[in-house]
């Protein structure tokens, strides 16, 4: 199976879209080689700005560019984008509803060897709490491209969550992304697994293992974490009666929390088991970490079967 990192797909997409949207500006904080924006920088040198290791300044500069009618993409590791510069995003970008796209690469324990300081595990929680802010976390290269195309068309601030490692290709170039819409990648009748980003392909693998054990699993890709697809969540609750969420993020405040809110407010009474991180990460190979923290297919199966 072909594998491409979502950050690599972002680099391709933004370089392509730069020709179509002349007002796209790309900002980096000394991590352009990691956020994969060098192709854009080469194609449009007058529209790429390295701000240096100064994420707060980068976010507010992006706000200023948006004030002047630009579509700035402010890119750095997810932890620094959403953590270091949270208040600049909250007060300077989201509150005035500016058209800034915050791009956080290297999210989750998938970041691997750099260890816990570089693994954003609370970014979904802190971004989705902010009014006006949308949160998208694509599962593969084609979804990443589709999400970015949608972001360029729709006005307003977005947090785009990307990952470091290559992930299996699930879609093709015909795929269209719609904010607020989940995608049923595999239907099933016994349980539903809601997954996002890097965990989507793992949830699909888990569903195959479960199938062999006689459990029919529906797998939903919840790339649009905010707005979230309430209809799909409630329909899945009616149809399968047993729900699971899986994310490379703390279980507090992330995808599982967002789904819980929908289920509780609708009075569904259907339980949801959240699979995700409960603590800080550590250094290690991404696959070793996913195995250790139960975010791989086997880990998901263990929870479902348990």
């Amino acid at each position: 199976m072909e594998k491409i990192a979502t950050r690599a797909a972002f680099g391709e997409a933004i370089a392509e879209l730069g020709a179509k949207y002349r007002n796209i500006m790309v900002l980096d904080a000394d991590l352009a080689s990691s956020t994969k924006t060098l192709k854009f920088a080469q194609a449009f040198p007058g529209r790429h700005f390295n701000i240096g290791i100064a994420e707060q300044n980068m976010m507010s500069i992006a706000a200023g560019m948006a004030i002047k009618g630009k579509i700035p993409f402010a890119c750095t590791f997810a932890i620094f984008a959403t953590g270091r510069a949270w208040e600049q995003i909250r007060n300077g970008i989201a509150y005035p509803n500016l058209n800034v796209k915050v791009v956080g690469s290297h999210s989750g324990i998938m970041t691997g060897e750099d260890g816990a300081t570089h693994q954003a595990l609370e970014d979904i929680a802190v971004m989705r709490a902010i009014p006006n802010m949308k949160v998208f976390c694509p599962a593969d290269a084609y979804e990443t491209k589709a999400v970015i195309a949608s972001m360029c068309e729709d006005f307003g601030p977005v947090y785009l969550r990307l990952g470091r490692s290559a992930v299996p290709v699930l879609y093709d170039e015909k795929y269209r992304f719609k904010p607020g819409k989940g995608d049923v990648l595999r239907d099933g009748t016994d349980i539903t697994i809601f997954a996002v980003g890097s965990t989507v392909s793992r949830a699909l693998s888990a569903a195959e293992i479960l199938e062999s054990q006689g459990v029919s699993a529906r797998v939903c890709n919840m790339c649009s974490i905010k707005p979230i697809d309430e209809d799909l969540i409630l329909e899945s609750a009616r149809k399968t009666k047993k729900l699971f969420s899986v994310e490379d993020h703390q279980i507090i405040g992330g995808l599982g929390s967002a789904i819980s809110e929908v289920l509780a407010e609708a009075g569904s009474g259907i339980p949801l088991k959240r699979i995700g991180m409960h603590k800080f990460g550590e250094s290690g190979k991404d696959e070793d970490l996913y195995r250790k923290y139960g975010l791989d297919a086997e880990g998901i199966v263990r929870v479902v079967s348990g």
Partner: peptide, 18 residues
Amino acid sequence: TTGSLGQGISMAVGIALA
């Protein structure tokens, strides 16, 4: 939109760059 100190000057830099 300002009030959180230190951010306005960065925004001014962003406008000037654009």
